[in-house]
Simulated scan of single mutants.
Amino acid sequence: MSNRLENKVAIVTGGGAGIGEAISKLFAREGARVIVAGLPEDPVDDVAADIRATGGAALPFKGDLSTLQAAKDCVKTATNEYGRLDILINNAGTFVETNMLEDFTEEGFDYMVKNNIRTSFAMSKAALPELQKAKGNIVFAGSEAGVLGVPQNAPYGGTKGFVIAFAKGLAGEQAAHGVRVNIVGPGPIDTAWTHKETGPMDKQMEKMNNQANLMGRRGSVEEIANVYLFLASEEASYVTGALYMVDGGITIGKGPIGDQAAKSFKQEPQPSLDLDHSMDGHTTIRE
């Protein structure tokens, strides 16, 4: 299949790196005109130039998208240059540190709230008038952490839990306007975030991320971008308010996290009831 987003205009926040770069380039390859949006220090110029060099249409936008003014300016860039806005990909976010909560920094918490929550709020608010005109859609970046929580970064999971609930509420509101809203929930993905050399994870967390899912590896950024493409396309015309987990099975995996449990957790309490049938049960179908 090709040209699945032909004549569509998309904004991809956090579009300069990681999953965002893959989304930007895949959407452009499928015919979309893309605004590659990010912070001033993000490589959005490079990604937009790469897209144009391969025959696609893309422009960079730099700004702090957690502010409503920058979000409005980003949307205006899309409408001024391409005449419309069909798709908003709320991909921008950050994973800044790993610490138990008692050691988690206030700065790290505030930074995640700003980039994971406020950016999603501001961009959605700014884009909705145009998306309503186009009967377009929004796809948010959730996370398996927003469903399960994540040890040593409880605030990150909390921000993603907000995003998931916010997006579902927005789907309910926007149905009256013909705007679909969905969420992608990645698991551990092969980006700088999940390598000890380039992100906040240590060697032990890296190992556990790979062992705790059914596939025994990180996902690739292209594997995630493919799901964004489906949800943003007309192929998902009957999908709204949905959370698509793209996590290698980590949400149902029985990984080795119990190895890290305190000894007091591993020891069963002494029974206080006189039980004779605790090991009985219908383990096969019986007449």
Rank of each mutant, 00 (worst) to 15 (best):
A141R: 12
A141Q: 15
A141Y: 07
G142I: 11
G142D: 14
S143G: 01
E144R: 04
E144Q: 14
A145L: 05
A145K: 03
G146N: 13
L148V: 02
G149D: 08
G149V: 11
P151C: 03
Q152M: 13
Q152V: 07
Q152R: 13
N153R: 02
A154F: 01
A154W: 00
P155L: 04
P155D: 06
Y156R: 04
Y156S: 01
G157C: 10
G158Y: 05
G158D: 03
G158V: 08
T159F: 03
K160E: 00
G161R: 06
G161Q: 07
V163A: 12
V163K: 11
V163I: 15
I164Q: 00
I164T: 14
F166M: 03
A167H: 01
A167T: 00
A167I: 00
K168E: 15
K168G: 09
K168S: 09
L170P: 02
L170V: 02
E173L: 11
Q174G: 09
Q174L: 14
A176K: 15
A176T: 13
H177R: 11
H177N: 15
H177I: 01
G178V: 05
V179Q: 10
V181G: 07
N182W: 00
I183G: 13
I183W: 11
I183M: 08
I183D: 13
I183E: 10
V184T: 13
V184P: 13
V184F: 09
G185D: 06
G185I: 00
P186K: 04
G187K: 08
G187I: 07
P188W: 05
P188K: 04
I189N: 03
I189G: 05
D190H: 10
D190Q: 12
T191N: 01
A192K: 13
W193H: 01
W193K: 02
K196M: 09
K196A: 15
K196G: 05
E197R: 08
E197I: 05
E197S: 15
E197L: 04
E197H: 02
T198L: 06
T198A: 09
G199S: 10
M201E: 11
M201I: 13
Q204D: 14
Q204M: 14
M205G: 14
M205F: 10
M205C: 03
E206S: 07
E206K: 06
E206V: 11
E206G: 07
K207W: 14
M208C: 05
M208W: 12
N209E: 07
N209Y: 12
Q211V: 01
Q211C: 07
N213T: 06
N213G: 09
N213W: 12
L214E: 10
G216L: 06
R217L: 08
R217Q: 10
G219H: 05
S220I: 00
E222G: 01
I224V: 15
I224E: 04
A225G: 00
A225R: 03
N226Y: 12
N226M: 07
N226F: 06
L229D: 13
L229K: 11
L229S: 11
F230C: 08
L231V: 09
A232P: 13
A232S: 15
A232G: 13
S233Q: 08
S233R: 04
S233P: 07
E234M: 08
E234N: 15
E235Y: 03
